[in-house]
Every structure is written in structure tokens, then in C-alpha cells.
């Protein structure tokens, strides 16, 4: 990201193309930010650092944890016992939230939703996608999870329990997807390339070993 207006005090850069026309709420946000900075409650640098921290977080963090768990069974045991501590082992801080990792197995497929708002494991996956925050997902994931999964192209066999986690309070959930077949001997980095954001929300499975993936 370049050219955040707050980088320049009050000399505002033009809005980036992706911003579209400035909305009433964009102005409201800017107004509140400017007033808080003038009152000394926040600094422009605080805002910039918070945005940089947000931009640095994304599914690559969760993917590292999953790949480590696939690669190292002792880490996997720690991850399932205490996700927050296991994240910290990899230098990932959970802030005020607690990370609960739920494991997909031959018997259980997990799916994450927040019906009341849009709670999401931001510290390990970044900002949630729009569909996660949408009414259809929030309404239907708890009541007709198999239909929602099918809309993502994910069909879970009838002998597997679909377990939906409604993220209502102080925990944030991450799905540990099943390790794809044919990945024996793969490096952690190669394994991480199979771990998609959607597989850690539970709407899809990890990529198969044969799917072409971009190499880093």
C-alpha cells in the first residue's frame, strides 16, 4: 500500500483508484481520525503502524502453522492443545483473542462461522473475505452447512460428521485441514503452498498434491 493520506498530515493525497468515489462514511472515518489525532488520543504514526500490521497478516500465517503441524506431530499436539501458544512459537501474536484449532479427520469436518457479527481469526488469516461477513453465509452455515459447503464445491461424505463452530465469544477458530495424500517427504514450505485460506475456514479442503501451485 502506498500513499495513505495520513502519511501526509492534512495534505491529502487523492484517493486510490480502488477507493471509488469518497462516501459519506469514508469522510466520517477520516473526520474522526483527524479529530482524534488533533486531540492527541492517537497519532498518525499509530494509525500507519496499525495498518501496516494489518497488511502483514494473512493466510500465509495460518498456512505456516498448518504445514508445521503436518510436518511435526509434536507441534500438532501443542497446536490442538493451545493454539495461542502454538502461534506464539512461530512468532504470531494473537492479541486479546484466544486461538482454538479444530482438526479435520476421517470422521469430522469442521466449519467456522460467526452468526452474530463476523468474528474471524484475523491474527492468523488477516481480514475476512466479504462472503464470510455476508448474510447468506452467517445465516445458513449453522443450519444447512452441507448446502453451503456444496456452494463452495465441497462435498463431505455422509459418514463424516460436519461440525460447525459458531464463533460467538472470546475464542477464534482455525481449521486444521487434512494433509493431502501423496505429500510424504514434502518440505514445510511445499506443504504450506497447499493450505488455502478457505481450507482453514473449512469451506474447502487443502489443495491436492497434484494441483499446480505457484512456487515461491
Amino acid at each position: 500500500m502506498t500513499g495513505h493520506p495520513h502519511d501526509h498530515g492534512h495534505a491529502h493525497a487523492p484517493a486510490a483508484a480502488e477507493d471509488g468515489p469518497p462516501s459519506e462514511y469514508a469522510r466520517l472515518g477520516r473526520a474522526v481520525r483527524e479529530i482524534l489525532v488533533e486531540k492527541g488520543i492517537l497519532s498518525a504514526a499509530d494509525v500507519r503502524r496499525a495498518i501496516e500490521a494489518m497488511d502483514a497478516r494473512g493466510p500465509h500465517l495460518g498456512a505456516r502453522m498448518v504445514a508445521r503441524a503436518w510436518h511435526d506431530l509434536a507441534y500438532k499436539a501443542r497446536l490442538l492443545a493451545d493454539g495461542t501458544a502454538a502461534a506464539a512459537e512461530l512468532g504470531i501474536e494473537m492479541g486479546p483473542t484466544i486461538l482454538k484449532v479444530v482438526e479435520n479427520t476421517a470422521a469430522v469436518h469442521n466449519l467456522i462461522v460467526c452468526t452474530l457479527c463476523s468474528c474471524y481469526p484475523r491474527m492468523v488469516l488477516g481480514i475476512p473475505p466479504d462472503w464470510y461477513k455476508s448474510r447468506p453465509y452467517r445465516s445458513r452455515a449453522v443450519h444447512e452447512p452441507r448446502s453451503v459447503l456444496a456452494e463452495f464445491g465441497t462435498v463431505i461424505p455422509d459418514d463424516v460428521e460436519v461440525r460447525v463452530h459458531d464463533s460467538t465469544a472470546d475464542l477464534r477458530y482455525l481449521v486444521l485441514p487434512r494433509r493431502p495424500a501423496g505429500t510424504e517427504g514434502w518440505s514445510e514450505a511445499a506443504l504450506a503452498s497447499l493450505v488455502t485460506r478457505d481450507s482453514m475456514i473449512g469451506v474447502s479442503l487443502a489443495r491436492s498434491a497434484h494441483e499446480p501451485v505457484e512456487t515461491a
Binding site: 500500500m1 477507493d19 472515518g29 482524534l36 492517537l42 499509530d46 495498518i51 500490521a53 481480514i127
Partner: peptide, 14 residues
């Protein structure tokens, strides 16, 4: 958008 990130940052800081 930049303004959305700023709003997110406001809440984090507040």
C-alpha cells in the same frame, strides 16, 4: 479501500 483500513486501525487503537 484506504479509508476502510483506517477505520479498522481506529478500532484496533481505541
Amino acid at each position: 479501500a484506504a479509508w476502510e483500513k483506517e477505520v479498522d486501525a481506529l478500532l484496533v487503537l481505541l
